[in-house]
Design a protein around this nucleic acid. Sequence first.
DNA 1: GAAGAGTTGTACT
DNA 2: AGTACAACTCTTC
Length: 174
Amino acid sequence: MAKSRSDEQLTYDVFDTDMGWVAIVGGDQGIVRASLPEATPETALDFVQPEVSMAIHSPDEYVDARMLIAAYCAGEAVDLTNIPIDTRDATPFTRNAWEACRSIPAGETRSYGWLAEQAGNVKAARGAGQAMARNKLALLVPCHRVVSSTGALHGFGGAGLPLKSRLLGMEANR
DNA sequence: GAAGAGTTGTACT
DNA sequence: AGTACAACTCTTC
């Protein structure tokens, strides 16, 4: 770990899945940033900027992650938790929230309050939500399984909502 | 069912 | 260091 992040060479890969193109950017510690399934590889790569700008295309590094993500997008029951992730930019609370989020079983949903409790503070549900908002690992951290206390898909800022609803439907149907 | 107040964490200035 | 913002939850009308 002696090597600094700035001195580290990032690598990326982009591939097509059943739901669209997914781009992933990783470092020495693991995946640093991942995109949601997009219509075109260009959009997917745009999603992982600016990290991808200083990364080189190394599909050989992520053949394992590619297979898992592709299988997941195809509806297969795979464990995305096997993919190593690097939470360098995350604060302890955020990292803990992401870790708790990965702990949620497929097809199940948890509330932000539960997530906050796992992260350390029960009343930090709002902060937990923000941690998900800052989540750069997209599919690797199944933030779509986190819903509001009432069970409704709250927030999920922007165009991610339809996709997450789709993912939930897929997992539930599975 | 809808609206308002309260807490905690993160990001930015 | 301080201020503003946020993908929440709970209590009350």
